[in-house]
Measured scan of single mutants.
Amino acid sequence: MDSLVVLVLCLSCLLLLSLWRQSSGRGKLPPGPTPLPVIGNILQIGIKDISKSLTNLSKVYGPVFTLYFGLKPIVVLHGYEAVKEALIDLGEEFSGRGIFPLAERANRGFGIVFSNGKKWKEIRRFSLMTLRNFGMGKRSIEDRVQEEARCLVEELRKTKASPCDPTFILGCAPCNVICSIIFHKRFDYKDQQFLNLMEKLNENIKILSSPWIQICNNFSPIIDYFPGTHNKLLKNVAFMKSYILEKVKEHQESMDMNNPQDFIDCFLMKMEKEKHNQPSEFTIESLENTAVDLFGAGTETTSTTLRYALLLLLKHPEVTAKVQEEIERVIGRNRSPCMQDRSHMPYTDAVVHEVQRYIDLLPTSLPHAVTCDIKFRNYLIPKGTTILISLTSVLHDNKEFPNPEMFDPHHFLDEGGNFKKSKYFMPFSAGKRICVGEALAGMELFLFLTSILQNFNLKSLVDPKNLDTTPVVNGFASVPPFYQLCFIPV
């Protein structure tokens, strides 16, 4: 009986604490739906499609509103004006990374994606500088992407125009580009180590996009005490870190300090320079996690976009025909596509942009946080508050993009057929937390897609009208449904 009384008292205290925290903070924060004790607004949000729920709530509470995930307040920004004001106009104040408990377990605050403060700034600055020195957006990395595009075309030829699921092959190409940047090595598509790495990356994007992960991140005790797919994700990350550590040891034994070959060499050189400046942010643990982040951000996002792009091109054969006509006119058949071609191919450029806009790969991006107490639109948001960005509300804005739910390359073309930029184009987020590999991803999408369409016609196994382009999961990332196609050599 005594234990029951204690339990009831504990629960009562928890409920009172929950109510007090919510009521004391709500006077400062933007308005929002009334949260339930302990669980907050979790029942009012469709976990399978958070973005749709945010759109519905914005119609009631406006472009800036507050939700509670458990006891934790989260300020939501919906629509271009609110997102721009926060991420661009007040970029420094909104540059923090929001709480992501599962990532905390995986990387302990290291790396480039989930770190904060001085650690994040130094690692991000170093990573950007190193990638630029190796030619991100310049010639040397373009050579690597072109080489991988040629290998991709050869792998597709091996399908002999038979029906195939493109998931694996389209994942190999961007993964190999990242391998060449980090390890100075590309792998054969049949290499077992490479296959294991690909498998872990593919599993992780599916797990991260599941409703279960949303629950884990908002009720963090689940991570330590409950079984579930989150444990598989943590094991996959541990596998990748151990693999990278092996490569780091190989580099330490063979590195030429006067001739760095890749990202690992550059990081080890930085560690050597910083060894007298303790404590340094440049450690082996930081290198492991930064490399894992580059793999995660640079492989599955690009391969998922490529997979979605081919599905949309199957669905819209008239678009595919126009792209192939432009390829034939500008590039021809006797040389590989290059980035200089893009400025002469406005329709193809528009298609690449429209694919990214339409699929809305990361509907709410990753959570941000404010780095200080900030007054925002007459609300006071306390330091450390998590900020949720609705990228969907920007990419699918119906004023900027008429009929935003329709796939239409003319969203990025003017009346004369010239490519038209849009400030609403934010597939990689915006501001200080914009994806480090934005330029690389854009290069890969253009070169891989043009190389495929230069060499193959795409054949659907069903009537294009019957192809479903609805994402199968739409949590962290929008993942396309399973499909097969035939690559018919031109």
Results as ranks from 00 to 15, higher is better:
30 P>K: 00
363 P>F: 02
285 E>G: 05
134 F>N: 11
311 L>E: 00
142 E>A: 05
65 F>Y: 14
95 S>L: 05
147 E>I: 07
65 F>A: 02
27 G>Y: 14
445 L>A: 10
33 P>L: 03
116 N>S: 12
142 E>P: 01
43 L>T: 12
369 A>R: 14
309 A>N: 02
394 V>L: 15
10 C>R: 06
490 V>S: 11
93 E>L: 06
377 R>T: 04
392 T>S: 14
236 N>C: 02
429 S>Y: 02
425 F>R: 03
101 P>C: 12
55 T>D: 14
68 Y>D: 03
41 N>C: 05
237 V>F: 09
226 F>P: 06
99 I>C: 15
232 K>M: 06
167 T>R: 07
374 I>A: 07
136 M>F: 10
26 R>L: 12
38 V>N: 02
94 F>L: 11
263 F>A: 05
388 L>Y: 08
84 K>Y: 08
162 S>M: 15
88 I>S: 13
164 C>I: 15
191 D>I: 01
361 L>H: 08
5 V>G: 14
305 T>E: 03
262 D>K: 02
304 T>D: 05
331 I>H: 01
313 L>F: 09
116 N>E: 11
237 V>S: 07
138 K>V: 11
59 K>T: 12
335 R>D: 06
344 H>A: 14
455 N>Y: 04
58 S>E: 10
148 E>N: 00
142 E>N: 02
344 H>E: 13
105 R>P: 12
471 P>C: 06
283 T>D: 08
183 F>T: 04
311 L>G: 01
376 F>N: 04
31 P>R: 07
354 E>F: 00
56 N>G: 12
29 L>P: 03
237 V>H: 09
305 T>Q: 03
90 L>F: 14
461 L>R: 05
344 H>C: 11
168 F>T: 08
485 L>S: 01
182 I>A: 02
386 T>Y: 09
162 S>L: 14
427 P>A: 09
391 L>I: 09
460 S>F: 00
306 L>F: 01
488 I>M: 12
43 L>N: 09
258 N>P: 08
349 D>V: 14
236 N>M: 02
90 L>C: 15
161 A>E: 11
339 M>V: 06
173 A>C: 02
10 C>F: 14
436 V>S: 08
84 K>S: 09
9 L>W: 13
18 S>D: 10
257 M>A: 14
122 E>L: 08
435 C>Y: 00
329 R>P: 00
39 I>A: 10
147 E>K: 07
199 E>F: 07
218 N>Q: 14
418 N>S: 11
311 L>P: 01
128 L>C: 11
423 K>A: 10
302 T>C: 06
48 K>G: 11
141 I>M: 12
489 P>M: 00
375 K>R: 14
359 I>H: 07
330 V>Q: 13
477 A>P: 05
141 I>N: 03
108 R>E: 11
81 E>T: 10
336 S>L: 12
223 I>Q: 10
433 R>Y: 00
336 S>Y: 15
47 I>P: 14
471 P>N: 04
7 L>R: 10
270 K>R: 13
260 P>T: 07
403 N>I: 06
254 S>R: 13
123 I>Y: 06
239 F>I: 09
111 G>I: 01
105 R>L: 13
385 T>Y: 04
101 P>T: 13
344 H>M: 12
470 T>L: 07
272 E>P: 07
406 M>T: 14
469 T>Q: 05
123 I>S: 15
312 L>S: 01
119 K>C: 11
350 A>C: 02
129 M>S: 13
359 I>P: 00
170 L>R: 00
6 V>E: 09
306 L>Y: 01
443 M>Y: 07
157 R>G: 07
484 Q>E: 14
87 L>Y: 07
149 A>D: 00
411 H>Q: 03
449 L>R: 00
475 G>S: 08
469 T>S: 07
33 P>D: 02
341 D>I: 04
342 R>N: 03
60 V>M: 11
415 E>Y: 07
248 V>I: 15
136 M>Y: 10
220 S>H: 13
434 I>S: 15
304 T>A: 07
387 I>L: 09
358 Y>I: 08
55 T>P: 14
63 P>N: 14
222 I>P: 09
359 I>C: 09
97 R>G: 03
436 V>L: 15
151 C>R: 06
343 S>P: 15
478 S>R: 05
161 A>G: 15
2 D>Y: 14
250 E>V: 06
416 G>M: 13
287 L>G: 00
325 E>S: 14
34 T>K: 13
52 K>C: 09
361 L>M: 09
412 F>L: 02
485 L>V: 14
94 F>C: 12
361 L>D: 03
321 A>I: 11
320 T>D: 03
165 D>G: 01
233 L>S: 03
